[in-house]
Design a protein around this nucleic acid. Sequence first.
DNA 1: TACCGGTAGATAGTAACACTGAATAGCGGG
DNA 2: CCCGCTATTCAGTGTTACTATCTACCGGTA
Lengths: 109, 109
Amino acid sequence: MGKQVTEMLKGTLEGIVLAILSGRSAYGYEITAWLREKGFSDIAEGTVYALLIRIEQRGLVDVEKVPSEKGPPRKVYSLNAEGSEYLEEFWRTWSFLTEQLEQLRQGDN
Amino acid sequence: MGKQVTEMLKGTLEGIVLAILSGRSAYGYEITAWLREKGFSDIAEGTVYALLIRIEQRGLVDVEKVPSEKGPPRKVYSLNAEGSEYLEEFWRTWSFLTEQLEQLRQGDN
DNA sequence: TACCGGTAGATAGTAACACTGAATAGCGGG
DNA sequence: CCCGCTATTCAGTGTTACTATCTACCGGTA
């Protein structure tokens, strides 16, 4: 999709993944597939896994190892209380940004 | 404002500045002041100058040195044709992102 | 004159984040 | 037995914003 998305995703991809996890638990491979389906065609698998490790180390998610019928065991992530709080904060920040951008787009600058 | 904004700005700040320049020409100090006024309270001055140099080197803006009554000469930036094209592309990318995020927020995932 | 505050820009070093590319590992089917 | 699919990990790279500092010009004031 191009470099612009890549740069814009910095900071937002984390929120996107947390938002996905707020709906239901999921594991890396699944999340990557879901993102691709949604149009984020060139998000590298490595990126998602790295992000999941980051948010795990920050204590925003809980992890459970679940055996898979096909392939190695999955690491299933679910949002915990701290993660929910962080996600709320993310939405506030996101709203602020979109408001500013919307104003700029309308040309009142 | 916090680390979340900082990370989200990566990739969007460039679009923001280009959008400002699409309305009128401006120089670094002015842009920084305008951003602060708009609520981007902790954007460092150095950040804006570095960004302006980047977009200048990529040929998205034209530059003109204008003497100032108070202080050193200003480097006044204005969007050129290539910059306008890039800005359009930015808005398309931005729209895509906001749509996806809006869907996630509504919880249909 | 000497100094200071406000205006204006440049720069070196750092941290965070997404990408690239490759490696590892388990399972089932031809 | 190897290939393809599922699933995760990791080392190295590039981009971007931040921090902190430096240069420079001007007007006012002691």
